[in-house]
Structure formats: structure tokens, C-alpha cells
Amino acid sequence: MTDTALGTPGAADHGHATSTGISNTKLAMWVYLGSDCLLFGSLISTYLLLRHRSVGGPTPEELFDIPFTSVSTFVLLMSSLTMVLAVSSLMRGDVRLNRIWLGTTAMLGAVFIGGQVYEFTTFYREGLGYTTNIFGSAFYTLTAFHGVHVSVGIVMLMSMLVMSFRGNLGPERSETVETIGLYWHFVDIVWIIIFTVVYLIP
């Protein structure tokens, strides 16, 4: 039975060992992202439902600083660009450039998180605590879930960098970086939705 095409050593091994020819990890990432759609779907619709139901306290219109958030949005968008550049540079075998782009992506992500921390503290000073009203609970929960996703992405990017400097991130591993990229872009996509639905549409 080993002498069939798929059972031959070597040919059976890497790349096409799986039934579909795609790697387990990449498929698992996509399945996970599909599942995450429901997570953010629940959170966003909860927010939409509750944001105008507050009995008192600051309202979204009083607090949102659209120009500031727009800058954050641009930062995250740019990090998506640097992420694809990281993937494509590694596919070409340019390990040095790959490090630069990975580092830039992580840094842009960190800037975004910093912006979020700044936004939260500003809102808190203006009187919106987590328990102040129902808008506060919903807003902080939704954006914090997104922020946690970004932070997890930063940790993954940093571990990529560590691997790269230890000489373990060559072009043969470009798919690993691509898979992390998928996660990163998904987080960006979620922000595209949050930016429109939460911030821009009153």
C-alpha cells in the first residue's frame, strides 16, 4: 500500500501530505478566524443594541474624538501593509528586510494600543467609567476585546522576530509568517468595521 502515489516517502511528506494539500496550521487559522467572526458579531451587535440606551452619563457623541481615532485607524492600516511586505520579503528569501517589516508591524500595533490606552484614559477623565452607564460597559468591552486581539498579535510578531534573529526564520517558514499575517489582517478587518459602525455612524 505504500507504493501508491500518496504513500511514497518524500512525495507523501511535505506540502502534500494532507488530503487537501494545504497545511494544517493555515487551515486551523482560517477555521479559527471564521469562529472569531461570531465572537465579534456578538460583541458588535451587543454594542449597537445598547449604546443609546444609557439612562445618563456621557454619550458617544460627547466623547468620540474622530480625528484622533482616524489617526489610529491609519496606523493599523499601515501595519497591514507592512505585514504583507514582511510575508512577501520572506517568500523572496530576504531575511533582513523581513525583520524590518516584522518589527515595523509590531511597532505600529503597539502605537495603536498606545492610542487606545490614551483614548480610554481621556474618556475616563471625562466621566465615562466602566460602570458609569450601559454605553460605557458596552464600548469598553468591545474595544478592549479588539485591543486584546491586537496585543496577542504583537506578541506573536515579537516571537517571530526572536526566531528570525536566532536564524530560524528562513523562506521555508514563510507560511508561518503568512498565517500570523492572516490573524493580523483579520484584526485590521474587525477594526474597519468597528471604526465605521461604532465611531462614524452616530
Binding site: 493555515k26 482560517w30 471564521g34 472569531d36 467572526c37 461570531l38 465579534f40 499575517g181 489582517h185 483579520f186
Partner: peptide
Amino acid sequence: FMHLKYDNPIFRRVFLFGLFLS
């Protein structure tokens, strides 16, 4: 950016199913 246009259609189906349901 996520290569869905180029990649194996199974990724597209899995992801779009989640998105559609949501």
C-alpha cells in the same frame, strides 16, 4: 492581503461561512 483571492477555495468557504452566519 489575506490572499483569499488567490488561495485554496476551502479557506474562502470556511471564513465566509462564519462571516455569513454572523
